[in-house]
């Protein structure tokens, strides 16, 4: 689709970095009961390149919102540096920048239009003829596997679906940075897959998507990079594969009537494993990134003289990785 140039939008930027945040500290502070004060965000470092889709996972919705608002030029920050598309941050905050599309929830879409109509409506100023535009939008809905939303009036959609409709509109824009700030929402696998497709679309035109969420499953499906925002600091950032490999070391989930006894027996056989008991389950973790082989697991059980009701191979997930990080922070 051909875009008409929005006001202030210049030629496509040759910039490699879409976001370069270094030492970013918020002006907002936590004040604890004892009167101690501490910045909500402290020394945040984040670099997002063209074509990347980042998921920032955190345990505090307010921190996630704040981070995306600072990056999206909605709020000012205290100290540090934040550069967008290698242009420097705007002095005037809250001003809509042509290269940043900020989405916070799904309340900004009108309820009396259906999804297709809304997307046609927001793109009415494109130079592409209506028929061609509608075909392109329909194709996009098919490609993103979000066709089930096509003709549903927006007022009947869930909050998460409305947010995805906003994201579809952002996918049609030329904004190089799309910020999807949805810490209060959770997404079903179908929507998560749709977000993944939209992220690919944004990446395909040289943009980047930044998702702030507490939904690890969605982030794992949709993003290729992730970072954890814990206690105001961005920790453990990297590609999704790296994070899963280094942080989620749970190999097996064993189920037994007497999990404590099972854990004790296994621990004597394999002291190099980390074993944690959750209700009827024993979770087996390896101490390094190497995955525990299935034969190794069975041998250990045999050596310990234990039987299990169920043995489940644990898939590496962002949720587990996040739990590990939280456990590391004693949260």
């Amino acid at each position: 689709m051909k875009h008409r140039k929005p006001g202030g939008y210049s030629e496509p930027s040759p910039a490699t970095y879409i976001v370069q945040a270094s030492g970013l500290t918020s002006r907002e502070v936590y004040q604890y009961a004892d009167g101690r004060q501490e910045s909500v965000l402290r020394g945040v470092y984040l670099e997002i390149r063209r074509g990347e889709c980042w998921g920032v996972i955190g345990n505090e919705a307010f921190e996630l919102e704040l981070l995306t608002q600072i990056i999206g030029n909605v709020r000012p920050y205290g100290s540090g540096r934040c550069v967008l598309v290698e242009r420097g941050m705007m002095r005037k905050k809250r001003r809509i920048l042509p290269h940043v599309f900020y989405i916070s929830g799904g309340d900004t879409v009108p309820g009396n239009l259906n999804t297709l109509e809304y997307l046609m409506y927001v793109t009415a100023h494109f130079d592409t003829p209506g028929c061609e535009r509608q075909v392109a939008i329909l194709e996009m809905l098919l490609q993103t596997e979000l066709y089930h939303l096509t003709l549903v009036p927006i007022k009947y959609l869930s909050a998460a679906e409305k947010a995805v409709v906003c994201l579809l509109a952002a996918g049609l824009s030329r904004a190089l940075l799309v910020i999807f700030s949805v810490p209060e929402l959770s997404f079903d696998p179908k929507l998560s897959k749709g977000i993944r497709h939209i992220a690919n679309r944004i990446a395909g035109r040289g943009g980047a998507l930044l998702i702030a969420s507490r939904d690890c499953d969605m982030a794992q499906t949709a993003c290729d990079h992730a970072a954890f925002l814990i206690n105001g600091k961005l920790t453990q950032r990297g590609t999704m594969d790296e994070l899963l490999t280094y942080l989620d070391r749970r190999a097996y989930i064993l189920e037994n009537e007497t999990p404590e006894a099972l854990a004790g027996a296994l621990g004597r056989v394999r002291p190099d494993w980390i074993l944690r008991v959750f209700e009827r389950e024993v979770h087996v973790y390896s101490q390094n990134t190497e995955k525990v082989a299935e034969t190794e697991m069975l041998d250990a059980l045999l050596a310990a003289g234990q039987t299990v009701d169920a043995l489940q191979t644990s898939k590496r997930t962002l949720k587990n990785a996040y739990r590990e990080v939280l456990a590391g922070h004693a949260l």
Partner: peptide, 17 residues
């Protein structure tokens, strides 16, 4: 009120005056 609720945000981003 829809201006205050950012309902025109996408429109302005996508070229509406």
């Amino acid at each position: 009120i829809e201006v205050m609720q950012n309902r025109w945000y996408a429109l302005v981003q996508l070229g509406y005056s």
